[in-house]
Simulated assay, not measured.
Amino acid sequence: MDYPTPAGTVTGLHDVTIAVPRSGITVFAGPSGSGKSTLLRVLGLFERPARGTLRFDGTDTGPLRHPARRALRRDHLGLVFQNPPENLLDYLNVADNLRAAAQSARRRCEPEEILSRLGLAGTGSWHISALSGGQQQRLAFGCALARGSSVILADEPTSQLDEVSADLVLETLRYLAEHGFAVLVASHDDRLIELGTRIARLRDGRLEGVE
């Protein structure tokens, strides 16, 4: 990835080659500025790589026009941001957030079934502000489930949370991995890194190794 700056072009990622498995938790770990969030945006089809090839389930995404890339994101990918309120519609209650997520992917969902799976049973009529930060992040992952996403990407999902709230997110990630989802996470949270089934370590935009 190349970014123009007043001092010239800066390359955010250099020669990163990685294959992401269809299930489990892949963690992109590294210090701030290492390129992990940039890599997540590329894998989520929000940015195009300046060079190289990105394949999704065997399909080269490079030649795809914007509508086709948007359709891939809608039908297969769910993104969870690090700030919980950014993931949700605060004018809708909990259940209606799930319904809206499903509708955006032209699907239907059963909110209470999803809420029960994520330890949020009984909160369907609650306002978003009544949820803790950890519960809001759980609901954000629930919205990805409501959309039918097979791949869920999360950018620093615990960085804005206290330890108790972060525990809820870790439990949710563990649940998703155990139920066959591919979860891609950018994080420098040691507990989240320990949870990963694969760890890709980045520094200065380069892939140092995969564990």
Rank of each mutant, 00 (worst) to 15 (best):
L202I: 05
R191I: 04
L54V: 09
I199Y: 08
Q136F: 02
E178T: 03
P49C: 01
R99C: 07
S37E: 02
G33K: 14
P157T: 04
G205S: 08
L153M: 15
F28C: 07
A144I: 00
E171V: 02
N93S: 04
D204T: 07
F81D: 06
N87C: 06
E178V: 02
R138K: 12
L139K: 02
I152M: 14
F181G: 00
E178I: 01
G142W: 02
R117E: 11
A177Q: 02
T158P: 08
V20L: 13
A19F: 10
L161Y: 00
A177G: 11
D204R: 13
S116E: 15
Q82T: 05
H127W: 06
P84H: 01
V20A: 10
L88Y: 02
L207T: 07
A200Q: 05
R107D: 03
Q160L: 12
V10F: 10
H127A: 10
R99F: 07
A182C: 11
Q137D: 01
S116Y: 14
L161T: 02
I193G: 03
E208I: 04
P21G: 04
I152E: 03
A166S: 14
V210I: 15
R41N: 14
Y3P: 08
R198G: 00
F81S: 10
R174Q: 15
C143K: 12
A29L: 01
L43A: 13
R70G: 07
R198A: 03
Q135A: 09
L43R: 04
R74L: 08
S129E: 10
F141L: 06
G119E: 05
N83G: 12
F46W: 10
A166I: 03
S125N: 09
R191D: 00
R203T: 10
Y3W: 15
T59P: 02
R108P: 04
A102S: 06
D167W: 08
V16A: 13
S116M: 14
H14W: 10
L202P: 08
Q103F: 14
R51M: 10
L153D: 03
D167G: 15
C109D: 00
H179M: 05
E208L: 14
T38K: 09
L92C: 13
L173H: 08
E112A: 09
R55T: 10
G12T: 09
A19N: 14
T172D: 06
V20N: 07
R107K: 12
D57S: 15
E208D: 13
W126N: 07
L98M: 11
L202M: 09
M1A: 14
I199D: 07
H76Y: 12
S150F: 01
L92M: 13
T26D: 01
L170I: 14
